[in-house]
């Protein structure tokens, strides 16, 4: 099984464009799984339609204060690394958005005054379109932590679907959600834009992936716009550029209409085929 993460530093460089089209291209040949892990703003569903197979609400565990049992000793306050507990007068307040569900306060409370209870954080939806199994990770509005939901979505998909290739549409940026999304990937494909801003954020992502010791390749999107700094940099560092998607108004218009480029822009099929073959020749991981 090969897990391929499509990521970027900058937003709007074409992660979803690449993920959905690549998944649809592979699905023409074999079974494939697509995970929309941009849980704060999932949008693959705009392009991937199919039969709704299942939907599962996801929860996280947080402590609930039991006023009857609590002696207000304050141990929980000093234990919490995330400052999710605050003592106000004769009361302990719990802030679910700050809690990382580590259980320390709950387990170590001598009075058992902080039992863990589950609260909903989001949902996972499984859509099936013939060869293509699509799982969407969607965080509830106002919920701050995407990381636990991203990890649950991966587990959920693994239990429901078997395919040789799994594609992750990752969250933008280089913060915890992006790290969580790429951390078990066998290959990261960076969707990059040949502009100064795109190049800058590409380098941030490159540093992150080097830190995580993740192999990565680049797809230059909107090729022909901006300048040649990104391409020169990749050639110099021998970073593989596995496809170039031209800067084209027609592609953008079709994308804005929610259409897959494979259906509307035949000239791109060779680019997606190149990416597919690059993935294919990766060493198999039998884990």
């Amino acid at each position: 099984m090969k897990k391929i993460a499509i990521a970027s530093g900058k937003g709007g460089t074409g992660k979803t464009f690449l993920s959905t089209n690549l998944a649809a291209w592979i699905a023409q040949k074999e079974a494939v799984t697509l995970l929309d892990l941009d849980a704060e703003a999932p949008n693959c569903h705009l392009f991937i339609k199919g039969e709704r197979k299942s939907e599962a609400i996801q929860y996280k565990m947080i402590p609930h204060w039991d006023a009857q049992r609590c002696t207000l000793c304050g141990d929980c306050l000093s234990l919490c690394h995330f400052n999710a507990l605050v003592k106000v007068q004769q009361e302990i307040m719990v802030f679910p958005q700050l809690c990382h569900s580590c259980y320390a306060c709950s387990e170590l409370c001598l009075e058992a005054a902080l039992p863990m209870k589950k609260i909903p954080i989001g949902r996972i939806t499984h859509i099936q379109n013939r060869n293509l199994a699509f799982f969407e990770s969607r965080l509830n509005i106002g919920e701050e932590q995407a990381v636990p939901l991203i990890s649950k979505t991966k587990k959920y998909a693994q239990n429901q679907s078997r395919s040789e290739i799994t594609i992750y549409d990752c969250p933008p940026g280089t913060a915890c959600p992006a790290v969580e999304a790429v951390k078990d990937a066998h290959l990261v494909i960076l969707a990059a834009e040949p502009t100064p801003f795109g190049f800058h954020d590409f380098k941030l992502m490159m540093h992150l992936l080097n830190e995580l010791q993740k192999p990565f390749a680049v797809v230059i999107n909107k090729y022909g716009s901006g300048d040649s700094h990104l391409e020169d940099f990749c050639l110099e560092r021998k970073i593989p550029i596995i496809a170039k998607i031209p800067h084209s108004r027609k592609i953008a218009e079709n994308y804005a209409r929610g259409k897959l480029a494979l259906d509307t822009n035949q000239e791109l099929t060779s680019e997606f085929d190149q990416i597919f073959h690059f993935i294919r020749q990766l060493k198999r991981d039998e884990e």
């Binding site: 690394h81 995330f82 400052n83 999710a84 605050v86 003592k87 106000v88 007068q89 307040m93 802030f95 700050l98």
Partner: peptide, 15 residues
């Protein structure tokens, strides 16, 4: 020194 929850901490101090 604290990465998380600065607001509630300072608020607790004030109370």
């Amino acid at each position: 020194q604290k990465q998380h929850g600065a607001g509630p901490q300072t608020a607790q101090k004030i109370t």
